[in-house]
């Protein structure tokens, strides 16, 4: 999700203190080349069935 894009860090803590990691950038890029399109629908090769009767 777009809100997931951010700089992520981790803070590691124990009894004796804490340390913060350097940030890791999460980048989400949109899929721009995706294509799924019906080019044609034909009427040949129809297989018929009668499921309810």
């Amino acid at each position: 999700m777009p809100t997931d894009a951010a700089a992520y860090t981790v803070v590691v803590t124990n009894t004796f203190g804490a340390v913060t990691s350097s940030p890791a950038i999460l980048t989400l890029e949109a899929i721009t080349a995706e294509l799924f399109k019906i080019s044609s629908l034909k009427t040949n090769n129809s297989l018929i069935a009668d499921p309810l009767n």
Partner: peptide, 8 residues
């Protein structure tokens, strides 16, 4: 009630 398929 016909089910069928054809070329796409």
């Amino acid at each position: 009630e016909t089910l069928g398929f054809a070329d796409a």
